[in-house]
């Protein structure tokens, strides 16, 4: 039995130490907001925060997450909440599938850089693929979130 702390809640689970956090979170804990996209840390759909740091859950073993605070898209952080509002204002999503990862990556960006430039956003978000192509809106929404925050 192992304990994962996700969004402030402890989950006791049975799973192999090597199972990627992504599958532990989705299949064992049952939180399906974190998405599988590539399994090799290329697309960012599986992005989560581990002790506040951005991480690709598909490429980290379950053992790495034990004893740490994990935040998923089902969770809440100040910046995540503001970004959600901005996502809604700008009407960002198309299919919505990658947006969990996009939001988590954007929240990590704002946690580290409260006023990012376009270039900062490009760099920070380059690990997240959106096949629908909502990039312009994501960028705009991040700027909108900054404005909402500074209001």
């Amino acid at each position: 039995m192992k304990t994962l702390t996700i969004n402030g809640k402890n989950h006791n689970i049975e799973a192999h130490d090597d199972m990627p956090l992504l599958w532990a979170i989705r299949d064992i804990v049952g939180l399906t907001g974190t998405k599988y996209g590539c399994g090799v840390s290329q697309c960012g759909a599986c992005s989560i925060l581990i002790d506040g740091e951005l991480a690709k859950s598909c490429s980290l073993p379950l053992s790495y997450g034990i004893g740490k605070n994990i935040t998923t898209i089902e969770g809440k952080t100040t910046n995540l909440e503001i970004l959600r509002k901005a996502w809604s204002t700008i009407n960002v999503p198309q299919c919505g599938y990658c947006q969990s990862g996009q939001l988590i990556a954007a929240s990590a960006l704002l946690d580290n850089n409260p006023n990012p430039t376009d270039e900062d956003i490009d760099i920070a978000m380059s690990g997240n693929i959106c096949r629908c192509g909502t990039y312009s809106r994501i960028k705009k929404a991040i700027h909108t979130a900054v404005k909402l925050k500074n209001k």
Binding site: Y36, L83, S88, P93, G96
Partner: peptide, 16 residues
């Protein structure tokens, strides 16, 4: 989008 809340909270059920 009528589904914006689900899309931004991980609540939308995709096939997977």
């Amino acid at each position: 989008s009528i589904d914006i809340k689900d899309f931004t909270h991980g609540g939308a059920t995709f096939g997977i």
